[in-house]
């Protein structure tokens, strides 16, 4: 069942992104930035965790989960410790993805040539 919801929710998020690009003439970068912001905002109401429970990868793969995870881990650490831990928690869970992406991108740049 979560497979179906992954398709529907994931597709819907991409559809919203496409409509923003086509109707408001935004650049893809504008859209990804606003999605990260919205993902972070939804954490305020604790909504994003519910969407992930429902749709799994449908909510984890879109870039909005990036904002969610960052906010989530920041708050988690801050609640355990002091307010200062908020800053320590920002990259706590996403760091594996970011570091991995950087390394892979670096390796790819060593192997591949631009194709044009």
């Amino acid at each position: 069942m979560s497979i179906l919801f992954a398709f529907l929710i994931g597709g819907l998020i991409c559809l919203i992104g496409q409509l923003l690009v086509d109707l408001l003439k935004l650049q893809p970068v504008h859209v990804t930035v606003s999605f990260v912001f919205v993902g972070s905002l939804l954490e305020l109401f604790g909504l994003y965790d519910n969407i992930i429970k429902l749709a799994g990868a449908g909510a984890l793969l879109p870039i909005s989960s990036f904002g969610h995870t960052m906010t989530h881990s920041a708050v988690e650490l801050a609640v355990k410790g002091s307010y200062l831990d908020l800053f320590g928690g920002v990259f706590q869970q996403t760091s594996s993805g970011i570091a991995y992406a950087i390394v892979i991108a670096f390796i790819c740049s060593l192997i591949f040539k631009p194709k044009g």
């Binding site: 690009v21 650049q27 893809p28 631009p114 194709k115 044009g116």
Partner: peptide, 8 residues
């Protein structure tokens, strides 16, 4: 953008 960038 970079030539390999996947923007539409």
């Amino acid at each position: 953008f970079p030539t390999e960038y996947g923007g539409q």
